[in-house]
Design a protein around this nucleic acid. Structure first.
Lengths: 153, 153
DNA sequence: TATTGTTATACTCTATAACTATA
DNA sequence: TATAGTTATAGAGTATAACAATA
């Protein structure tokens, strides 16, 4: 028997057959692509992914508290706090104590925040479309439905 | 006209309709799930995702150099160097200078590395299966194919 | 006592610049 | 002059413990 396999040492593309058999690896690779397109197109709005997501949820859930926001976005509360600090400092949203439960903060977009979110959503949709360039409209819906089966409760 | 929308301030699930319309957001949420399942099941092997991927590629491409490895895994060369340091310190792989080009390092798994990878691959497959629990075999293949269309060249 | 949110902190991941040794 | 790999370092993302205010 051969004592060891012949070294390949090529500069060609590496064989990744085994990794590509895993959904998780494909998911990661696709996520890297879409993340980078998103960041590119969102740079002019100076918004990171988590910040964009916050604006979106707050816009559609005005007066949401931070606990619900943190849960919806799967972000740890301390990290949400600093994230909101930045957005509040940019006057994109406000935090007000809930008069009915003074522990809670009610989060709402400012007019300026709503305006920025409107523009940012277009940029996000652009990035999305660029990423799924080679997918038909039906395939895009199919993909979203399959992904949702993984993370939805 | 109403001057402002009625605050919701609910602890119920937040409306995420707009975010869920984006492939990227669904991708991220699914990625978080699969990542956490992977980490759980890979803990007993003390392997992170990037380390597992390295073992996989090296196993299928013995003698690969670090440049090709970094490209295949979309990892920056400095980060790959420290990653390989750890795996080499654990005697899971070896780095040898290429006699034909002494700048390059030929990376190979040790017997111990190959053995660990074998067990780790089972754990990775387990995590994968747990994540796509609600998908049929056909849907899993479909999902991988759709994802590959996003990141493949 | 439990809950909301904050501060401080640490750990991982990722990215870049500057260096070495070879080519 | 260019390339493979390394070192050092900085930044972002994420996680936990300890705390203050309120319930």
């Amino acid at each position: 028997m051969a004592s060891r396999p012949a070294p390949v040492a090529s500069d060609d593309q590496a064989d990744q057959t085994e990794l590509l058999g895993l959904v998780g690896y494909n998911l990661r690779r696709a996520y890297l692509v879409i993340q980078s397109l998103f960041d590119e197109r969102m740079e002019k709005h100076d918004l990171r992914q988590a910040e964009f997501s916050v604006l979106s949820i707050v816009k559609d859930n005005p007066g949401i508290n931070q606990k619900a926001l943190a849960e919806a976005l799967v972000v740890a509360p301390p990290n949400l706090a600093t994230l909101l600090d930045r957005l509040e400092a940019r006057s994109l949203l406000t935090r007000q104590r809930n008069p009915e439960d003074k522990r809670a903060q009610l989060v709402e977009l400012t007019t300026q925040g709503a305006r920025l979110y409107g523009r940012a959503l277009k940029a996000a949709a652009d990035a999305d479309n660029a990423a799924v360039d080679r997918l038909s409209a039906a395939e895009r819906e199919q993909l979203k439905a399959l992904l949702r089966k993984i993370f939805a409760d």
